[in-house]
């Protein structure tokens, strides 16, 4: 039996160095809610765990005039308790709240949810719809990449070896803007999304949609940004016909598979419903946000 080491660096530089030295045999331990299960089932056998929860930059939330800087290792429960965040980005919080139980949210992190790269990750569609950016550090230094460009498929990301997502950056929410995330699961809680849909939209002074972003989860190998669905409501009052077009565009963009959690046919059938319902909630929130 090979020995698995554990390190808890206090700085990003030390973490990057540890990852680089392990040459691929290391895993980053954030909340551990996915990693520990993978370890237990023997799906992964790393030689080193790098626990990044001791790095202040990764475990803090900074809110200023430019927006929110959410440390990638902040627990989801801490995020749900951040009042300014919940007020400005309720859709992002919707997605976070759907993840696991209270217990799981007490450990799980945004960085983990993003980098585990499950197509059904509940926090990701709302972050994409919000236009969130991932702040990344690695052997080559720091870079910023839109959240939509991190995952490439189940368990696969564009991160290069040794890179760590340190934070998720959200802009300030504009006036007359609102976001929402909805998902479908057979149970009310404790399930993996069969379909998820996030909508962010902005209304002008007359109530016409001036900007929209629609992102879908669990209907492709990764969360999708669907500009066609957004285009269906931009320039409209987000009324019935526009919502029907949005739903149709969401359906058209989806490439779901059959698995134990849902059939392709069912996912195609309800992705539009979820997108439309999320849009209705986002619209309501945008109208209230004056």
């Amino acid at each position: 039996m090979s020995e698995m080491r554990y390190e808890a660096p206090k700085t990003l530089a030390a973490a990057v160095a540890l990852l680089a030295a392990a040459s691929g045999g290391a895993r980053i331990l954030a909340g551990g809610t996915d990693l520990l299960i993978q370890l237990r089932t023997g799906r992964i056998e790393p030689s080193l765990l790098v626990d990044i929860k001791g790095i202040p930059e990764m475990t803090s939330i900074v809110a200023d005039s430019s927006g929110f800087r959410l440390g990638a290792a902040v627990t989801l429960m801490q995020l749900t308790e951040h009042q300014a965040l919940a007020q400005e980005w309720p859709g992002v919080i919707d997605g976070i709240k759907f993840i696991g139980s209270i217990q799981v949210k007490g450990r799980a992190t945004l960085g983990g949810n993003l980098c585990n790269a499950s197509p059904a990750a509940d926090s990701v569609p709302a972050l994409i719809a919000a236009g969130a950016v991932a702040s990344i550090i690695g052997p080559a230094g720091r870079r910023e990449t839109p959240v939509a460009e991190i995952a490439t498929g189940p368990g696969r990301t564009t991160l290069t070896p040794g890179e760590i997502v340190t934070a998720l950056l959200l802009p300030r929410q504009a006036r007359h803007s609102g976001d929402a995330y909805l998902r479908f699961t057979p149970r009310t809680e404790m399930d993996i999304a069969v379909v998820g849909a996030a909508v962010h939209l902005t209304l002008d002074e007359r109530g016409i949609c001036s900007q929209a972003r629609v992102a879908l989860g669990a209907v492709a190998s990764r969360a999708l940004l669907v500009p066609e669905a957004a285009a269906a409501v931009i320039g409209t009052r987000v009324d019935g016909p526009a919502l029907a077009c949005l739903a149709e565009a969401a359906r058209a963009a989806s490439q779901p598979i059959d698995d134990k959690r849902g059939t392709r046919e069912f996912r195609l059938r309800i992705v539009g419903v979820m997108a439309q319902r999320a849009a209705e909630i986002a619209l309501d929130r945008a109208r209230r946000n004056s």
Partner: peptide, 12 residues
Amino acid sequence: GFLDYRIPVASD
């Protein structure tokens, strides 16, 4: 497992 063998939870 209890994730995909879905016994009722309190909120159901």
